[in-house]
Write a protein that binds this DNA or RNA. Structure first.
Lengths: 197, 197, 197, 197
DNA sequence: GATGAATGAGTTTTCATTCAT
DNA sequence: AATGAATGAAAACTCATTCAT
């Protein structure tokens, strides 16, 4: 039973990994179900035993793959001892996660973040979850008096999320001569202190 | 003669506007050429008199529509009397432009920014052009001593571009109870001073 | 009036020549009306002032261009003093005509001869006209006692027409290191004496 | 297993037969893929499981259908005991084959023979193969002293191929009151002895 | 569960033809 | 007569999805 369960999981994951690989290479619309099946080493029809349809594969990417990564973010934030430490840990962990899984990063950045309105509620919720983390940090920092009080929490959220995404995207399409995680410290410094003198 | 010229332009623009409207509503891939034609009030075949193919419509969006907006940015930056003024003008102008043309904003954010590698050189060039503006401002500010010197110009570029895009995207998918341009001042403040105390 | 007539003819012919050139290069179906118009130096619509439709251009090729050539054949046959002389003249004239107008030859061989059933009666009639010439020669030769009597006239017709066409077609697609008209004498010799000893 | 194999072949052949039927009726260009699918009793898309595209169907006709016929010709020529016997067998076999498969005959004569330059190498090779047979016979006859030596082999080839094709084509578009194979003997007689007295 | 052949709706694109100027 | 922009019907082809084995 246990074994059967894990077998099942095995195929579910294999298809999901294949999909990520394919989506990251050709984009969602130009990827065909057959391509994914071939990449996963299963028959076309098998995909429909694990997913409702093509769209559902993308949705599952978030529920399964991304949720896994995101929960690590949560963990890191929980571990941090104060707001700035939490912030440092979140950004570092985020960049490291995306650096070590480039294909996932591409699918997330290209196919999901920008399509919030088109996609499923689950995905939006996923996206919001991240933003909640940021909110948490900001509010804690304000209590701790390490973060300015005269600022709109949602805006800070947007600044951080936007900056991090842009750093990731730039790295994705660069020739990758630098490591993504090496950007963490300078980025945090910038977010905290600003560009002004 | 004058009239004929404007008529001709008329149809090119009409199709382009219809395409932007359609792309912004359904996304590039889910929009059909027939839909665009109907929206533009022309026959399907007419589209191919003005554009090589569906892809070419998107490319033209940048060359024609976006380039127009971007050159306004350039103008604003040129007008600013110092780095911080230039910065303020750029951000304000950017938010205003996207606020007044929501459909263009969606197509730009969703279909282009995230697809840099897939799309035409012209578009990449377009995208770079913006980043050059930011670079210009930063370097001027460093000379004027209003912007910190211990920072990587590309990273600042990423922070700013990312933050602005995120602010726009959030607004696009919000219920729009606030004006986008009202975000300019607080955003600039944040970028300049940071979140720290 | 006369001049206007000839002007008209001028454009009619120009289009026809352009069509032959185009058809010979790309084949009837892959040639577009626009291509023909461009080649002829007229507007697309102008073609429809001189021809009912695309098909009609092909039909006119036979009525006008080919008929002209074919009437020369008739002339030659009339001039010949006996059956074998007529035969020699016909074959020689035929090969010369097609040699000097390769494009017409291609259109005739490829687009017409093999499509007898698909095409207009006029074309079939055209095609038959040639075969009538052969018949005339054969029957005269039989009277003159220079051509065997124990043979079916239609079959001889087929032998000759088939052989001549094949010689032309082979030449058309050869590297043309030999002249087509040089094949006349050997071919006639073969038709008259056969291959047997 | 055996059955599955034959089933598979079944559909490939069914489509091919349907295509030949359709091509012979309307010509290659006026035949649509949908027509062929309907005729074959399959869905449009199914065609693309067995053939790369419409063109590929025509190419397969030669590789599969015609090659089969042509190899029978080879067999017959091999069987003949001397040049004239080989000749008789070839011509008779050729006419019989085309008589019993009229649709194939039309496609071969109309769509292929005249398009040698446009079509696939395979087809040209096919066409050459036949001409090689003729060459073989002629050269043997010259050794045996039953065929004249003062003649160009390529020209004889053209005479024969041209004549046979013409006899077939004439029959195809006739009301078919005579059998095609009945033309074999008179045709051979003509080729061997010529029309002269 | 797994397969993959078959489906057919849906899409892009072409091009002969028309018609207002 | 001449133009050429506009039309829209028609065609090839793709691919997500189904279902008999």
């Amino acid at each position: 039973m246990e074994e059967k369960e894990s077998r099942k999981n095995d195929k579910y994951e294999k298809i999901l990994e294949a999909a990520i690989k394919t989506f990251s290479k050709y984009g969602y619309y130009k990827s065909t179900v057959s391509q994914i099946a071939r990449e996963a080493g299963v028959a076309d029809g098998t995909i429909y035993l694990y997913f409702k349809n093509k769209d559902d594969i993308l949705k599952n990417f978030f529920n399964y793959k991304a949720r896994e990564v995101f929960s690590r973010f949560k963990e890191e934030v929980k571990t941090g001892k104060d707001a700035l430490d939490k912030l440092r840990r979140l950004v570092t962990c985020h960049l490291r996660a995306f650096e070590s899984n480039r294909e996932m990063a591409i699918v997330y950045e290209v196919e999901a973040r920008r399509r919030r309105h088109l996609i499923d509620d689950k995905i939006r919720e996923m996206s919001n979850m991240y933003q909640e983390l940021v909110k948490e940090i900001v509010e804690l920092g304000q209590k701790e008096n390490t973060i300015r009080k005269d600022l709109s929490v949602p805006l800070v959220k947007q600044l951080m999320v936007g900056a991090i995404d842009e750093v990731i995207t730039s790295w994705l399409y660069s020739s990758k001569k630098y490591s993504l995680s090496s950007m963490a410290e300078p980025l945090i410094d910038l977010i905290v202190k600003g560009i002004g003198k």
